[in-house]
Amino acid sequence: MAEHARSLRERLADRGIDRVLWLLFPAAALLGLLFVYPFVYGLGLSLQPNEGAPVIGNYVRFFASDFERSTIWKTLALAIPAAAINVGLSIPVAYKLRGPVRFKRLITTLLVMPATLGTVLVAEGLIRYFGPIGWFNQVLMTLGLVDAPLRLTHNYVGVLASLIITGFPLSLLLILGHASGIDPDLERAAATLGAEPRERFRRVVLPLMMPGITIAAVLAFVAAFSVFPSAVMVGNPAGETRVISIAAYQAAFERFDYPMASAIAMIMAAVQFAIVGFVFVIRGRLYRGTTSGAKG
């Protein structure tokens, strides 16, 4: 009997099932408690509308209302450009910083600093700096470039600026981390094969940076899509920056309609999922292997 039990354990071990798997338990439990359960609970709640409406009543209401439905486009109009700009800015910086560069640590620290400040502090700073009597407008007016102060806060521009300031460091770190792993000999090899700098970047470095770029783009988008504090503080939360998270907040804490708030959260998740899925489908068609030319 004892021998039978031991051989079962051995057979399980052959398939990778052994006590080491228990190390996954804390993470799995945490995921279940903090993510899966609330998600399922919220999904259930969203399907129990108030006042005896049909099961999908909340979703019908959301999409029937221009005011609510438009939050999807308003949020996408912020999140997609923010992600694109953050990634677009990160690519050349990461390309320059990926090798051994003098003062690299200092430069990265300075570039990454905004991420450690938090959205609220950045928004506070933006209100003053970009405001009608802030430095930025003062300088523009002193130089005679504009006659009246530009409106850069409490609108779309302010929120986008805030998303770039707080989102860029994350994109840069992700892309830089990936780009630093690209074997510098590959670019040298391309040079000895006659490729000009532009061609080396286009044919060798950029394709090898793509996996890092897609991950960064996805995370930048997801982070920007759930924008809330800066949309309220430097945006126009009643108008052009009434993003979807504000719609959910108002449903939950101003109208106390939790089922509706849950439905909006589900719609948020669905939109993010659709965009992320789309990016990964494209990524699947790109090269995803090693970034060094040597035998792995």
């Binding site: 074997d183 000999d185 590959l186 040298r188 090899a189 391309a190 040079a191 000895t192 094969l193 006659g194 490729a195 000009e196 060798v204 394709p207 090898l208 090269y287 292997g289 090693t290 970034t291 060094s292 030319g293 040597a294 035998k295």
Partner: peptide
């Protein structure tokens, strides 16, 4: 890129993609 030499690197430096 203007010298038109061929070079073989120690780690081969083949383009992995």
């Amino acid at each position: 890129e203007r010298r038109h030499f061929g070079m073989v690197f120690q780690n081969y430096a083949l383009f992995p993609h």
